[in-house]
């Protein structure tokens, strides 16, 4: 088991390197530090000196990949790539371009509001989806099933923006049940979290239920289920004890596949509900064109995804002993 985990982690290293190089290419090669300086200083006061000053202050005045003026190891280390991109490998994100703020510090501070929204959406969401999916699968072939699926497709076809704007309007403005937006520290955050979480779950319920329903129906059609019925087990027991257990593998896959979408979703949620998390951090950086922050967030998002993939692979082996740890 341990060797498997180690090998799996080693396998991720080239991918992390690839992401690093790709972001460096995008942010330093295609969009050169000169372009960056010009965008940040503004069209009005551009002079060659101003650009040089800005580059020196932010550590962009080095050559991109190889510094031919230096000797020995410094040929590689005294470059933009080594100074600005390589530290990402050990999760040192450096300073932002605009306010010169410590990005690591910001991430640590903004992580918690993000988690407070994303985690409940994720966990309660899976629970709700599974419950409804099993309900629909239990009544398969009836009108409940038919209308359930139709409702799912309709819910999938409605824009996320509609759920958010509509939810804010109905619950926040008309019924005044929750504050429309904002955030608070500690326990007081609870009242701000409820509405985004509920809306986040509703957003994903359509596609989730439909997917899990197909998974269950696939499982129900198999031979061992027929055997279980033949030996006289009750339908509930067949479905919940045998069906659910065996449906775990496709469910696990889909759960990990949805991890990057957590980020996507929270980007919107945090922006609409003014939650000071990583998502709104990113959107603010986009609007201010702060490339250092955007690059850090691209990188952080990829790392989370890769970690998620590794965790799935490990959890596979836990739910299904047949999967060999090759």
């Amino acid at each position: 088991m341990l060797t498997y985990i180690i090998r799996r982690v080693l396998y991720a290293i080239p991918i992390i390197l690839g992401v690093n190089i790709l972001t460096a290419l995008l942010f330093f090669y295609v969009n050169t530090p000169d372009d960056m300086a010009r965008q940040i200083i503004g069209e009005k006061n551009i002079t060659p000196e101003a650009i040089e000053n800005w580059k020196r202050d932010h550590g962009y005045n080095l050559p991109l990949l190889l510094n031919t003026e230096e000797e020995g190891l410094s040929v590689v280390t005294q470059t933009i790539f080594f100074q600005r991109s390589a530290p990402l490998l050990w999760l040192d994100f450096g300073r932002s371009d605009r306010k010169n703020a410590d990005i690591n510090n910001e991430i640590r501070k903004r992580m918690w509001p993000s988690l407070a929204i994303a985690l409940p959406i994720f966990l309660i969401g899976i629970f709700v989806n599974l419950t409804f999916a099993m309900l629909v699968a239990f009544f398969r072939g009836t009108y409940l099933d038919l209308w359930g699926v139709i409702l799912c497709v309709v819910m999938m076809s409605v824009s996320t923006l509609f759920y958010i704007i509509g939810g804010q309007y109905v619950f926040g403005r008309v019924l005044k049940l929750f504050p429309i937006s904002g955030y608070d520290v500690g326990v007081h955050a609870a009242k701000f979290v409820v509405l985004p979480v509920v809306i986040g779950i509703i957003t994903a319920v359509g596609s989730g239920v439909r997917f899990y329903r197909t998974v269950f129906l696939e499982e129900i059609g198999k031979d061992y289920i027929r055997t279980a019925r033949a030996k006289g087990l009750s339908e509930t027991k067949v479905l919940f004890k045998h069906g659910l257990k065996n449906a775990m593998i496709p469910i696990l896959t889909s759960v990990v596949v949805s991890i990057p979408f957590l980020f996507y979703g929270s980007l919107l949620m945090e922006n609409f509900f003014a939650v000071p998390g990583l998502g709104s951090f990113t959107i603010e950086a986009i609007q201010a064109q702060d490339f250092a922050i955007v690059r850090s967030m691209v990188y952080l998002g990829s790392i989370l995804y890769i970690v998620g993939l590794i965790l799935t692979d490990i959890s596979y082996t836990l739910v299904d002993p047949r999967i060999r740890l090759e």
Partner: peptide
């Protein structure tokens, strides 16, 4: 490519 969250790659 798939490891980079789509929305962030699009943003960049």
């Amino acid at each position: 490519l798939a490891s980079i969250p789509a929305v962030l790659l699009i943003v960049a």
